[in-house]
Amino acid sequence: MAKTHVSTCINGQDAEFLCSPEQTLLEVLRDTLHLTGTKEGCATGDCGACSVLLDGTLVCACLMLAAEAEGHDVTTIEGIASGNDLHPLQQKFLDHAALQCGVCTPGFIVASKALLDEDPDPDEESIRYWLAGNLCRCTGYDKIVRAVQDAAAELRS
């Protein structure tokens, strides 16, 4: 079967890969590029565990063909920290105990980053609606919302 050659930029680095036409970006990230920080929770866009940024826009990697990434910038959880410095969102998730099992956490952090990039001072309701596509079954969301609020405050200061 003919594979498609795709040139992208992933986490600031040029990346090329071959994929089948029907392969999703999630499959290529995890299985071909070994970027396993992006998780599969449902593969139907209902849980947000595979959240990535495509040219800064928040998307589910399970709902995009890998071929569609041609010429675009992809940011995954592996690209959120700068060098050894955690992003304030990552630090605040830790400080607030905003994760329990941690499997939804990469998706939440990527989604929250997209929110704060767009709105540096979201209120609780905006945070909750923005993150409604990210399911967490452990925390009841309380500490996640607080971590995002706290990270937003730090980023604004």
Binding site: L54, L58, V59, A111, A132
Partner: peptide
């Protein structure tokens, strides 16, 4: 239509 993620596409 769907979540923020879905909205993006």
């Amino acid at each position: 239509i769907g979540s923020t993620q879905i909205q993006g596409r």
